[in-house]
């Protein structure tokens, strides 16, 4: 994992005065007290995304399994474990992010999941099969005219940026992490 964020990143190697004005302004945003509020917003935003995605997939296990099967990537033996387990994993991520416990590791897991989703959607698109990503419930085969691969990928990239921010700036306000560190 990258450097500890609990102490400000070391600038020992940086010759003093070399930072341009704009760059130091950016620094203030990404490292200053405002960063913790940005991270807090990102954390809660990502929590809402995971909660929404997970809850939408819980109600009907057969639908969740079919959404996974429709990608035609996993062997039949893994379709149900993934279809059944993934929504709960997403909800657990949401809970951890809301509480603010282990934000960095939750963000790392989020990044890995989102990269997997983006790869899966891209693969379906590249192979020319017509499916709904099943990202927020539903899923399975759809008419070729109803595929929305680009929107789905762009949306996931947006979520990926939130998660990446939290990987590098996991300190947030109102979090269990902050309470534990105090």
């Amino acid at each position: 994992m990258a450097s500890q964020q609990d102490s400000p990143p070391s600038r020992a190697g940086e010759p003093p005065g070399s930072a341009a004005g704009a760059r130091s302004a950016l620094r203030r945003v990404t490292d200053g007290p405002a960063a913790e509020w940005i991270s807090t917003a990102a954390r809660l935003g990502l929590a809402v995304v995971w909660a929404w995605a997970g809850l939408a997939k819980v109600s009907d296990p057969a639908v969740a399994a079919q959404a996974v099967r429709a990608y035609r990537l996993l062997p039949e033996g893994l379709v149900k474990p993934v279809g059944y387990g993934l929504p709960f994993l997403e909800i657990a991520l949401a809970v951890l992010l809301v509480v603010g416990l282990g934000v960095r590791i939750a963000a790392v897991v989020s990044v890995l999941l989102l990269l997997t989703f983006i790869a899966g959607i891209s693969s379906a698109w590249a192979r020319g099969i017509s499916i709904d990503c099943g990202c927020f419930g539903g899923g399975g085969a759809v008419d070729a005219s109803q595929t929305e691969y680009l929107q789905e990928i762009l949306r996931d990239i947006g979520f990926l940026l939130l998660a990446l921010w939290l990987v590098f700036r996991p300190r947030t306000k109102l979090s269990a992490d902050a309470w534990l560190a105090a």
Partner: peptide, 29 residues
């Protein structure tokens, strides 16, 4: 402290996924 947090988070995620597979298996027709 960090390792404890990391361990708990990983455990929470693993348990959640495991419970999910079990519960949904029970619920699925």
């Amino acid at each position: 402290k960090k390792m404890i947090v990391l361990g708990s988070v990983v455990a929470v995620l693993a348990v959640a996924a495991g419970v999910g597979v079990f519960v949904q298996n029970q619920r699925s027709k």
